[in-house]
Amino acid sequence: MDFFVSTFPMYLAGAGITLLLTVAGSALAFVLAMAVGILGTLRNPVARGIATFYTEVFRGVAALVVMFWLAFAIPQITPYQLDINFAAILALGLNVGAYGAEVVRASINAVPRAQTEATVALNMSWARRTWRVILPQAWAQMLPTFGNLVIELMKASAIVSLVGVADLTQIANQQRAATGDTVLAFTSALVMYFVIAQVLVLGVRLLERRANRRLGRTPAGGGLLALLRPPAATTRAKVTAL
């Protein structure tokens, strides 16, 4: 009990760093995923080429390797030293963004062709068509997978402890060294990671409900409690399709 009382503030601070990395990394990943995903749906071969190159490279190389490269290799050939937190966010965002881009591309392509044809018949511009018709429908479809990706990013953020960021994993390592109690030190961290994951799941499911309601699709099941139920099998699988 003493362990929890004395170390809880430290773990909380570590969890704060983990959350910060998750939010910042997700924001970067989201922007990249949207931009590159939309590029991938264009007819222009150059745009598609850029999108394919980005996704293949960053899905093919582990985030840890990218992070070490940014943090340790870049300062050697350039006069710039990236801030270690920034390098971590960049590596996580680039990695997860590549997975997200594929999700965005697939979701946009999955919107029925008749929708596009209708907008053409109504003489809508490309921007208007994408923003008002295609994206809202694709959005509802990409959200469940985005939720999984955010959790994967949160879990992957543990690698930043290897370059010296004081995240939850780093705190657990320090506590183990300080108290010698491996089980307690790491179990506390694991439980906090688990709680963060559950909160993230809840948030994404709220967003999903909103997106579906906006499209006039009534979500199944009742109040807030329904959100805590495990989701359908199709939304659970980790996105790794390369």
Binding site: K155, S157, A158, R176, V183, F186, L190
Partner: peptide, 15 residues
């Protein structure tokens, strides 16, 4: 599945 592989590695490695 909801917790990081790295932390699990440390956990088992030290135990």
């Amino acid at each position: 599945r909801s917790t990081p592989l790295l932390v699990q590695l440390f956990f088992v490695f030290y135990l």
